[in-house]
Amino acid sequence: MIEVQNLTKRYGDKKAVDNISFTVNKGEILGFLGPNGAGKSTTMNILTGYLSSTEGVAKIGEYDVLENPLEAKKHIGYLPEHPPLYLDMTVRDYLDFIYDLKRCKIPRKSHIGEICRLVRIEEVYNRIIKNLSKGYKQRVGLAQALIGNPEVLILDEPTVGLDPKQIIDIRNLIKRLGKNHTVILSSHILPEVQAVCDRVVVINKGIIVADDTADNLSRQLSTDHKLVVRIEGPEAEVRKLLTSVPNMQSVVLLGEREKGVFEYSLEAKEGSDVRREIFNRLSNRSFPLLGMKTSEMTLEDVFLTLIDDKSKGGKK
């Protein structure tokens, strides 16, 4: 449904997007993951025809965005990073305007009413957009993208500025929309992409570092072999015990957290799971295990891991 081939966007000497290619199949939800400034918004702006690419092709369905922009744009609903709202209009007037702008053929009243119900903005329908909270503004932005029931939805960080409950609502909504729309969604939050998307494209500094299913990516990024544990007992003995666990590569003391309780950072061989072994050994010696967690992966770690894998030729 969406096809991107060797897309490059240059701003002067700087390449915002560097020769990226990917496709999105019909009915798929694709996550576009990357830190700020990675080129996510630029790519989305090119796909929607707001910017043009320096090189390469972007196609929506069978239509090239550059050669046949009007046809391509008819099939896209776009929520930019900053929702394009006319602040001096009421939600009603604004959505009416967007409806006219997109030259919708669907019956106006029922279509707009349905969208408002879907994104839950009925209660602010007659208010001026300027006075709405950030969460509502974001949802009006989403409503605007949904008008005309486009086959392709391109959503640039749709959950930014929402409270946790709204985030869950919007994620569920996107999942539901994904059943009969093709969706590209960008985010800099790994769990969000994992929760919502079928497939994930990871982008950093304008280059794609991974393109895989969400499940595969989670497996690849699994951190079960990196643990932080908190154990009560004399440091030297505990350390010796931990080091003797098979596959253990490093044991680093992080410090004394309570009296006689120490925290250690452990790293075992990649792909091995040492959690049960640690528990068994500690309980044999009656050293109470007070806490164990897998160390959390930051987006930075994700890139390092992925780039590392790639350079080892480990891209599956």
């Binding site: 025809g49 046809e71 744009k73 776009y78 930019p80 394009p84 702008l101 030259r103």
Partner: peptide
Amino acid sequence: QALLTAPL
């Protein structure tokens, strides 16, 4: 962004 990405 809304105007330039609309079919217009």
